[in-house]
Design a protein around this nucleic acid. Sequence first.
DNA 1: CTCGCTCATAACCCCAGCTTATGCCCTCAT
DNA 2: ATGAGGGCATAAGCTGGGGTTATGAGCGAG
Lengths: 324, 324
Amino acid sequence: MSEGTGSGTGGGTGAAEGGHDTRARHGAGSLAHRVPDLGALELLLAVARLGSLGGAARELGITQPAASSRIRSMERQLGVALVDRSPRGSRLTDAGALVTDWARRIVEAAEAFDAGAQALRDRRDSRLRVAASMTIAEYLLPGWLVALRTQLPDTAVSLLAGNSTAVAERLLADEADLGFVEGVSVPTGLDSAVIGHDRLIVVTAPGHPWARRRSPLKAAELASTPLILREKGSGTRQVLDAALGGLARPLIELSSTTAVKAAAVGGAGPSVLSELAVGEELTTRRLVSVPVADVVLARDLRAVWPTGHRPTGPARRLLSLTRS
Amino acid sequence: MSEGTGSGTGGGTGAAEGGHDTRARHGAGSLAHRVPDLGALELLLAVARLGSLGGAARELGITQPAASSRIRSMERQLGVALVDRSPRGSRLTDAGALVTDWARRIVEAAEAFDAGAQALRDRRDSRLRVAASMTIAEYLLPGWLVALRTQLPDTAVSLLAGNSTAVAERLLADEADLGFVEGVSVPTGLDSAVIGHDRLIVVTAPGHPWARRRSPLKAAELASTPLILREKGSGTRQVLDAALGGLARPLIELSSTTAVKAAAVGGAGPSVLSELAVGEELTTRRLVSVPVADVVLARDLRAVWPTGHRPTGPARRLLSLTRS
DNA sequence: CTCGCTCATAACCCCAGCTTATGCCCTCAT
DNA sequence: ATGAGGGCATAAGCTGGGGTTATGAGCGAG
């Protein structure tokens, strides 16, 4: 996160830090202190939608005074007036409209979280069992599940995340109805449909020399430069190695996409990551993408199912949600 | 499995449950019920990063038992084991890793919210005063502010959002140091630099006939079809009208981008929106984009400042963060 | 003028989450 | 082997934020 400058995990704590409270770096107090909780944000969205505190309260199943007080304390916390109360209802102030839009992002992320988390348990009575590889499970599936939920609100979905091999196993053992894999080849015994594409892109922190290059990077250059990478065997690494001819040189090897991103953002060096993983970082310019000349780092995203068993029912529904 | 249904409200004094429940559509109980609060999510991220409950507790300035109990109750709430405890530390389970990734999205959105909200108050001692048009303030600025904060942690930023004219006024009255506008023309008296591009795209719910078109839409077709639109005078509407020759026909007119999106997602009809506004909806396929043949709906995103006064100091820093 | 909608205030209650104080488990170094 | 130390869990007690009911006050419509 933000405090990313991160002393970098150096097991031994105290070492540096000349007498400064660690929290100073986080700003005063944690985020949870400065950001209203989800309940308050939902309430704000409801007020925006319905134009009335009482109405919003009713929708959320609380009383009007509770809503009133909650909005008020949120305004106090943020130091900004959010709604204009009148005896005829409540409308957002200008600032309130902006805050509401930002709040919506949090709530949407929370909805995705919820949809994902719900799929992670259950497994018992689920009517749609999905198996997905990590990148897809991380970045795409929650959104799909949110969408699916609006279409089939009562369908319990279960999710199992693993690598391509694990996905194939589940499908062939009839322990999953639909799978999603990213990669260059389709496991045998499975039919597939391409539902999207993913490219690996070279990224660096904005300060890195490569960020200012005008000429695209050559494959040879990439292969000879030490990179921040996932561990050998990961999907990302495989694609990269294949594209470069097995030559990628690791500067550091980390075991999660997140750790790699954090290292790259922190300026540890260039990295190669899925564009799905770095979308946010690119638009906010915490990372910049470095054009590459002669390597194609694309891979298909595929839905897969056991040969012959075309997806039906909820699986078909989900599939149609995802393909473009 | 007893309570799942969440008898919730019924407790005790039973306030006459008439049989309402608008919430049915959202699932049972509000999000805040099913999603851990920000504090818990931050804690989880810290545990993931540090590999120890106690360490995470220390970092957040709480005690180890508090962290332990909080993680535990989060696991109970989600119905999934997140952390493998051992006498040597704690590591995430597979599910935990996934949950952590999803949690990070929420926390990032919260950081953006915080950065934005903080800029909305203050105004007094702020050392960088930014004025931005709505679309930019909504979708891009919070991310920039997060990034800026890592570079200049102690710079107080203030934000004023309004239309292009308001932005220009602020700058010329020396009430803002740097402005951002989207649109085709630059207000007089201001210098500018293009920092990005935005396109308006035609979107519909996936069920709409246009979603299945193979041939791109013609301008005439677009102009003759009633659309869900922002009110006349809004930036988006202006660009569209200009591109079509002042002819866009409204099916409904709504006063916020969000309302328009909601209507479009709900299937009320096709709409035209900034790609910035619908990124999320497109990747999750709640909306699909309809290709358009012969209209160019692009507009530049520009940073602006009073002619002659090149941005310096924090303004320059922010500017360099945003330009690509 | 009175109803019906809005929001605000007051007094009270409850539980989530914090704290301190302890104990067990495991590993590692002496 | 043994004690020190890091890591986690449990127990008991406190506090405050958020909820509730009850009530009052502004404003528009009939």
